[in-house]
Simulated assay, not measured.
Amino acid sequence: MVGTMEMVGILDRSEDLGKMILQSDVMEAYNNSQKALKEDKESQKLVKAFADIKDQYEDVQRFGRYHPDYSVIMKKVRTIKREMDMDDKVAAFKIAERNLQKLLDEISGNVAMSVGDMIKAPKDGAALSDGGCGCGSGSSGCGCKAS
């Protein structure tokens, strides 16, 4: 019974923490920038163009430099991504997204450290504090450090 009541208390506190995050200035900035991005037709055209070329890029990646359109697609990807990244709404959203991720990482780190030094928590947007991306495959294509 004691364990159950303790768990209920922990869950209540975590819900309170979630509500605090949702009401934070960082979350408000994120929501506002996301809304502005979604409502801007020009920004949406750039995002869609990037998503479309990204599909072609993934197809080219399967064959690498041996793909007949490798050079053309790689140049298009860089050009369209640069255009998208230079858009004010996209840039504002990315900044807000990074700030929110930083807040969540900081909170996760504080919770983990309060439990113990050996507890792993996301750091700098990564899934594991040892610098890996968290996919667990350890394949040469990703740069993960599978444990």
Rank of each mutant, 00 (worst) to 15 (best):
A49D: 14
A49K: 06
A49S: 12
F50K: 03
F50E: 05
A51T: 11
A51Y: 10
A51D: 15
A51N: 14
D52S: 10
I53V: 15
I53T: 11
I53F: 08
Q56K: 15
Y57E: 11
Y57P: 02
E58K: 14
E58T: 12
E58Y: 14
D59E: 15
D59W: 11
V60E: 00
V60Q: 00
Q61N: 13
Q61C: 12
Q61S: 10
R62N: 11
F63L: 13
F63I: 05
G64A: 03
R65E: 14
R65H: 11
R65N: 12
Y66C: 05
H67N: 08
P68F: 07
P68L: 04
P68D: 05
Y70C: 04
Y70T: 04
S71R: 13
S71D: 13
S71Q: 14
S71F: 08
I73K: 03
M74V: 10
M74Q: 10
M74R: 07
M74S: 08
M74I: 13
M74C: 08
M74H: 05
K75I: 09
K75E: 15
K75R: 13
K76C: 01
K76R: 11
K76Y: 04
K76P: 02
K76S: 07
V77F: 14
V77K: 09
R78V: 14
R78Q: 15
T79P: 05
T79A: 15
T79K: 14
I80R: 03
I80F: 07
I80S: 02
K81P: 02
R82A: 15
R82Y: 12
R82M: 12
R82H: 14
E83H: 11
M84A: 08
D85V: 08
D85H: 09
D85I: 09
M86N: 15
D87S: 11
D87E: 10
D88W: 06
D88H: 10
K89T: 06
K89C: 02
K89M: 08
K89A: 04
K89L: 05
K89E: 08
K89H: 11
K89Y: 07
V90W: 01
A91K: 13
A91N: 07
A91I: 06
A91T: 06
A92V: 01
A92P: 00
F93N: 00
F93L: 06
K94Q: 07
K94G: 00
K94M: 07
K94F: 03
I95W: 01
A96L: 00
N99Q: 09
L100A: 00
L100C: 01
Q101D: 04
K102T: 13
L104H: 01
L104F: 02
D105S: 03
D105N: 11
D105P: 01
D105Y: 02
E106S: 11
I107V: 15
I107C: 01
I107S: 00
I107Y: 01
S108K: 06
S108C: 13
S108I: 06
G109P: 06
G109N: 10
G109S: 07
N110S: 12
N110Q: 15
N110A: 12
N110T: 11
V111W: 09
V111S: 06
A112Y: 06
